[in-house]
């Protein structure tokens, strides 16, 4: 199971990096969110995918899955949510002000 997940994470990273290297700012934002998806899955996978009950006491289960990585992922998700929202608005503002969403065409020294 871990192997499949790791391959999936690898694919997410590949697509994310490919999108980040493209020209359009919107594709770059999508690339970063794919990267964060990848890394959250990685966090879940690396902690082990052994079967067990959901980490809620009262289920009277023999074993539980590791609760720590779930807390880490939850934290990381909201952080990347905030950052992605900011990035989208920034891309929108850039489109309004600079009149383009191509990262290549916004060079130059004009202020």
């Amino acid at each position: 199971m871990e192997l499949i997940m790791v391959v999936a994470v690898g694919i997410l990273f590949t697509i994310g990096v490919y999108l980040i290297l493209s020209k359009s700012l919107l594709r770059i934002v999508l690339g970063t969110s794919l990267l964060t998806h990848g890394v959250h899955l990685l966090l879940l996978t690396m902690a082990g995918l052994k079967t067990g009950a959901a980490p809620v006491l009262g289920g009277k289960a023999e074993t539980y899955v590791d609760p720590l990585p779930q807390a880490l992922i939850l934290t990381s998700i909201v952080i990347s949510f905030g950052v992605t929202a900011f990035f989208f608005v920034l891309a929108y503002r850039s489109y309004q002000t600079l009149g383009t969403d191509e990262i290549d065409s916004v060079k130059g020294e004009e202020r």
């Binding site: 980040i20 700012l25 770059i28 970063t32 990267l35 964060t36 990848g38 890394v39 959250h40 990685l42 966090l43 996978t45 690396m46 902690a47 082990g48 720590l68 990585p69 880490l72 990381s76 952080i79 990347s80 950052v83 900011f86 990035f87 920034l90 891309a91 850039s94 990262i103």
Partner: peptide, 23 residues
């Protein structure tokens, strides 16, 4: 946008490094 992109990528790598270390 450049600063943001660089730091998002490095933060992503940070989480990945934490994941590996935890494993």
């Amino acid at each position: 946008s450049k600063y943001l992109l660089i730091n998002i990528v490095s933060s992503t790598l940070f989480v990945a490094a934490v994941a590996y270390l935890y494993a």
